[in-house]
Design a protein around this nucleic acid. Structure first.
Lengths: 137, 137
DNA sequence: ATAAAGTCTATAAAAAAGATAGGGTTTATA
DNA sequence: TATAAACCCTATCTTTTTTATAGACTTTAT
């Protein structure tokens, strides 16, 4: 399951996507719309900004805005950013690889082999579903 | 990512699959083979037994054995049993449904719609990969 | 100047995961 | 029939992760 962080990020991105006609959107408005803690959401938006997905304007009249085209924001990117690996095991993660201590030899481990296949097929899905898909339904 | 419980379960099932010529296998042997806590593994095997995947024999000379054909044990079953939902959000889970508090109306929520699609495609993968796939590699 | 709004870091609280403990029950066998 | 081996069951403790909060700082419009 996705963490609340990722879930909130998706809601925020959706909100921002729906308000692209406005120059900026307040954290406060997004938080209120979904009943999310303002401060918690703040950290999330900051991460999205650092990842180059959002832009912001400081000071009075400021706020956040989408910096990318919704179809250029795949679910895989949002999930990796807030939740970490998409792979089911550390030993098959492309971005967060770590060996599994209980596995004697990765090269001959059937679990490893199958999980690589699962990872590749899962990535196909999550790289092709984007914020645009969420917005257009 | 899968929890250690699920990971250990997969290793145990693999071990049992490889030793199907023997009548029973000791928890101890599986735990030792993978450097897993005996007691922790005990709980896991018990769950697999209750789910009808393993059988056991008590008393001296007892142990565990696979009760199902490896190709009848999909990853989805093992994951659901030890980790819970496969869906990315509670509001799209088939087996563990719960509404999302921050979502005002599921019927019009784009996130919900997309996550249903992700769930269905993910299930296709996890229901078709089985213990047999792990054993044969 | 002032107030509004994002930035940043630290810490606290809650929940979940991981691990351990120990007594109970069953069964082969000497 | 006593004993040791092995699974069964439940409770509890510890650690880690997640979720949430706090507060001081910076920027900017008016």
């Amino acid at each position: 399951m996705l963490s609340k962080k990722t879930k909130y990020a998706l809601h925020a991105l959706t909100y921002l996507g729906k308000h692209r006609d406005e120059k900026t959107v307040l954290i406060h408005d997004i938080a209120e719309e979904h009943g999310i803690s303002h401060k918690f959401l703040e950290n999330i938006l900051l991460e999205l900004k650092k990842a180059g997905i959002l832009g912001s304007k400081k000071g009075k009249g400021g706020g956040y805005y989408l910096i990318k085209d919704p179809k250029e924001i795949p679910l895989s990117k949002v999930i990796r950013l807030l939740d970490g690996p998409i792979a089911l095991l550390p030993c098959v993660s492309l971005n967060y690889y770590e060996p599994c201590s209980e596995c004697k030899d990765e090269a001959t481990c059937g679990i490893n082999k199958v999980m690589i296949q699962v990872r590749d097929e899962t990535l196909k899905i999550l790289e092709n579903k984007t914020l645009e898909d969420i917005l257009k339904t």
